[in-house]
Simulated scan of single mutants.
Amino acid sequence: MTSSVPWTDRLSTGTEATQDDVVRWYQSTREGRAYVPTMIWGTLQTEAYATVILGQVDFLGIPNDVPAGVAKRMQRQQVLYDDKHHYDVVLGEQALYTNVGGPEVMREQIERLLRELGLASLTLGILPSTARVDLFPVHAFNIYGDGDRAHVELVSSSVDITEQSELDLYNKAFTALSRATSYGDAAEELLQKAHSFWTNTPLR
């Protein structure tokens, strides 16, 4: 089954309630997967980066409770440190260069990724922008609940997918993306390159 909920409904009271839902999703997921091509995965975002991202609520015309939403997003990150979860995450190289908040925010965000690269709970890879992938370009998605739900965020709505045949395709897509992804030292090299870019980018 596929269900779609408009953001104006889901965020009708602001971001905090929705972030509460996401915290529960992550706490109930022992083995998760995420592909995020153009921004940093929420569970690895710094507070400054998350503040800019959630601050985009004005675009949707919903209540602005960004500090509360950011606090919940930081709370959800505890799943990375409790030894009960594991997440396999692929970031597109573009995610390291999409300008969220300016050079200082981006530099600190890349430093966070470099620090977390060796976490036991995390397999973090970077998909190079020039990598050949045996799959047409696809949108970001998360696989939660130990594989029983895929979550996709669109401009106007969020979509949850639970039909097994569709979940199989999302897992197949993730496998194809992973094959072309850089891990370990190769991922660190791409992160260091992005860090140098933002370190040498003047503040404006």
Score class of each variant (00 low, 15 high):
residue 66 V to W: 04
residue 61 G to R: 06
residue 66 V to E: 04
residue 23 V to C: 15
residue 41 W to E: 10
residue 50 A to D: 01
residue 4 S to T: 14
residue 48 A to P: 02
residue 10 R to D: 02
residue 35 Y to T: 03
residue 5 V to K: 10
residue 51 T to V: 09
residue 49 Y to W: 07
residue 31 E to R: 15
residue 65 D to W: 08
residue 41 W to P: 01
residue 51 T to L: 10
residue 5 V to D: 05
residue 35 Y to Q: 04
residue 36 V to M: 11
residue 25 W to C: 04
residue 19 Q to M: 15
residue 17 A to W: 10
residue 5 V to G: 03
residue 58 D to T: 11
residue 67 P to A: 11
residue 66 V to A: 08
residue 70 V to K: 01
residue 2 T to Y: 07
residue 24 R to N: 05
residue 71 A to Y: 03
residue 11 L to R: 05
residue 40 I to C: 01
residue 59 F to T: 10
residue 2 T to M: 14
residue 8 T to F: 03
residue 66 V to K: 02
residue 30 R to Q: 14
residue 8 T to G: 01
residue 34 A to W: 07
residue 39 M to G: 14
residue 48 A to N: 05
residue 60 L to D: 00
residue 7 W to E: 00
residue 38 T to V: 12
residue 53 I to G: 00
residue 24 R to Y: 05
residue 61 G to I: 06
residue 29 T to I: 07
residue 7 W to T: 02
residue 67 P to L: 11
residue 36 V to L: 14
residue 21 D to P: 01
residue 11 L to P: 05
residue 37 P to N: 04
residue 67 P to M: 12
residue 65 D to H: 03
residue 31 E to A: 14
residue 19 Q to P: 09
residue 55 G to P: 06
residue 35 Y to N: 00
residue 57 V to E: 01
residue 60 L to M: 10
residue 36 V to K: 13
residue 58 D to I: 06
residue 17 A to V: 13
residue 12 S to R: 15
residue 16 E to C: 13
residue 70 V to S: 03
residue 62 I to D: 00
residue 13 T to V: 12
residue 51 T to F: 08
residue 34 A to Y: 09
residue 50 A to Q: 01
residue 11 L to D: 00
residue 59 F to N: 00
residue 39 M to K: 13
residue 46 T to D: 02
residue 64 N to R: 15
residue 38 T to G: 06
residue 44 L to E: 00
residue 66 V to P: 02
residue 6 P to I: 05
residue 11 L to Y: 06
residue 17 A to E: 12
residue 5 V to R: 07
residue 18 T to V: 13
residue 67 P to D: 09
residue 39 M to Y: 14
residue 34 A to T: 01
residue 23 V to F: 07
residue 54 L to A: 03
residue 14 G to N: 01
residue 55 G to K: 06
residue 20 D to P: 01
residue 19 Q to W: 11
residue 45 Q to F: 08
residue 49 Y to T: 00
